[in-house]
């Protein structure tokens, strides 16, 4: 009996060791690209057509100096920052308003509206882009940041699913109690639902703030031909073109580090809310 017990423990220990080995391997695989990124951003080598070794032969800050003095990176960074902040505010307001209306209010067009948005979501987003481009052109808003903000925020009502799922879990009895006390629906929304919705508000802001930093498809099309209005993703993609990559790979790495640091910090700080949002949305759909 005692022997059997020990052997079982032994098996457990071996599995644990194997698990640790796998987890360490996974961590290395997942972190190594970023290690490469950071190392290469401090590289003083002229890379020629390719990076030849893991560690550079010469270390230097040249890439960062070039980045801030010889390129439009700061401008792009400012553009993206501005767009992401405005988008976060507007998108959060729109998503909250839509979710509350669809979750709590009952009106004739509710079901048709939800079906409509479901169907619209099935069209590839870029399909409408040509038309949107010409609409913006008629309003003289192409190659403008305001136009980009409009494109990002105008249709965000369609992203109500996760937020509505959250509102659905808040007990209706709370609303009813407040209604009996004489509050109208507006007061219920602001005084009762919103204070309870902090996790989902933070989740929405977090996803909205980070989205413009990585979005390429729309911004590249809208800003075509005006490097002063690029976002970081569009500008940095240019540095990896075949003609540019030899001179700019190090600068690209430096820029990537600068872009990633604040977003990563934000993410790790607000990790809890992000996980809540992702999990909640996944199960309820």
């Amino acid at each position: 009996m005692a022997k059997k017990f020990r052997s079982k423990k032994g098996v457990e220990r071996t599995t644990n060791i194997v698990t640790y080995i796998i987890l360490v391997a996974i961590s290395i695989i997942w972190l190594i690209p970023f290690v490469i990124l950071i190392i290469q951003s401090f590289s003083g080598d002229k890379v020629g057509y390719s990076i030849v070794s893991f560690f550079p032969k010469k270390w230097s800050f040249d890439n960062y100096v070039t980045l801030f003095t010889g390129t439009k990176f700061l401008k792009w960074y400012g553009n993206t920052l501005l767009v992401s902040i405005v988008v976060a505010i507007v998108q959060t307001l729109i998503v909250l308003a839509t979710s509350y209306a669809l979750s709590r209010l009952r009106f004739k067009m509710r079901k048709p509206l939800m079906n409509l948005m479901l169907i619209l979501g099935m069209f590839p987003g870029f399909l409408s882009m040509t038309a949107v481009y010409f609409i913006l052109k008629e309003m003289s808003l192409t190659q403008s940041l305001f136009g980009l903000i409009l494109v990002y925020t105008a249709s965000t009502a369609m992203q109500y699913y996760i937020c509505k799922g959250f509102f659905d879990t808040i007990p209706k009895s709370l609303d009813e109690a407040a209604r009996i006390d004489g509050a109208n629906r507006h007061t219920v929304f602001f005084k009762i639902i919103l204070p309870l919705a902090k996790p989902i508000i933070i989740y929405t802001i977090l996803t909205a703030v980070t989205a413009p930093w990585g979005e390429y498809m729309f911004s590249s099309f809208l800003m075509l031909g005006d490097p002063d209005k690029f976002t970081v993703a569009v500008g940095m993609k240019l540095w990896l073109d075949r003609e540019q990559v030899n001179d700019y790979f190090g600068v690209f790495c430096a820029a990537a580090v600068i872009v990633s640091i604040p977003i990563t910090a934000l993410f790790i700080w607000l990790q809890r809310y992000y996980v809540e949002g992702v999990t909640g949305g996944a199960v309820k759909g």
Binding site: I26, W30, T210, M236, K237, A256, S260, F267
Partner: peptide, 22 residues
Amino acid sequence: WRTVLVMTIAIPQFVSLMLMSQ
């Protein structure tokens, strides 16, 4: 372990994708 993986979500996807392409 979890934070290591979450970090890759946090870093803008276009950065990691372009780096991978290189």
